[in-house]
Amino acid sequence: MPERIIRTKLVLGVEMSALKDLEAGLDSFRQKAGLAKRDYFHIRLALDELVTNSVSYGFSSGVGSGIMIEIALLPDNVCEILYSDDAPRFDPLSHTVAPVRSSIEEASVGGFGISFVKQMMDEVSYCYENGRNMIKMKKNVAAIGT
């Protein structure tokens, strides 16, 4: 268990290349915080899907300048994440696709992303504040070194 709060802040652009910056920034945080590989993978997947959503839909109208992600690993092994962008107001959590259960032919080629965010995180909520779409998330992570 970390004895202090470990924080990082990532500022990403409006192009899909933001995913490379996300990967690099998260990898640095993983090493600093000692996150287990599984937790790192889950956090990366959730943030990847949100970034992809912002870039593909939020910024597609030409409005908005970027994404900000603040991550804090607290001493009780809870990871708090604040994701925000200044794209037009939109709640992505209200649009999800259920897992495919019947046949592959019925599988849509889109819509899994936000469903993954909800599955990867223990708490997820959306609000719109000060001109920014904000998604607050919490994830209980494994104790460091496990």
Binding site: R44, L45, E49, A107, S108, V109, G110, F116
Partner: peptide, 14 residues
């Protein structure tokens, strides 16, 4: 590493 974008490749190919 794979995200939902990877799943879309698999679904489309299938």
């Amino acid at each position: 590493y794979v995200s939902s974008a990877g799943l879309r490749v698999v679904i489309k190919t299938n």
